[in-house]
Structure formats: C-alpha cells, structure tokens
C-alpha cells in the first residue's frame, strides 16, 4: 500500500517536473564520470536550472486543441 503511494507520488513529481533538478543532478553526475574532467557546463543552481528548463519547455507547439 505504502509502496504504491510512493510510486504514485514519484510519478506525480516526475510528470509535473517537480523532480527535474534532481534528475539534472543525476544526469550531470553521470556525464561527469563518463566524460571525465572536461564537462562543458558548470553545474547550475536550482534557480538557474529551473529558468532554463522552463524556457526550453515552452518553445514550439506545446498545446493543442
């Protein structure tokens, strides 16, 4: 029961983008390992990341009839 609540909560966070920064951190860490020292971008703060994420999300056709 508790497990399915946790699952639903994770899905909700994922769908809404609530966990986007956490996923970015994980992605950054993974890339850091694979590409060694020459990471092209410095790590963004949560506020900086969110700005970029939101602006990118809203270019192009995102809503329909």
């Amino acid at each position: 029961m508790l497990d399915s609540f946790k699952k639903a909560w994770r899905l909700l966070r994922r769908l809404s983008g609530d966990d986007a920064y956490e996923r970015y951190l994980a992605y950054y860490a993974a890339k850091q390992v694979s590409t060694d020292a020459h990471a092209p971008h410095p790590l963004l703060t949560k506020a900086e990341f969110f700005k970029q994420w939101q602006d990118e999300k809203w270019t192009g056709i995102k809503r329909c009839c």
Binding site: G17, D18, A20
Partner: peptide, 11 residues
C-alpha cells in the same frame, strides 16, 4: 512563486 520564491517547487 515557482520562479523566485521557491524556485523549481512545482507541486
């Protein structure tokens, strides 16, 4: 709220 008060706290 999402952008400045608590950045990224979407939910």
């Amino acid at each position: 709220y999402m952008r400045y008060l608590r950045p990224g706290q979407v939910l």
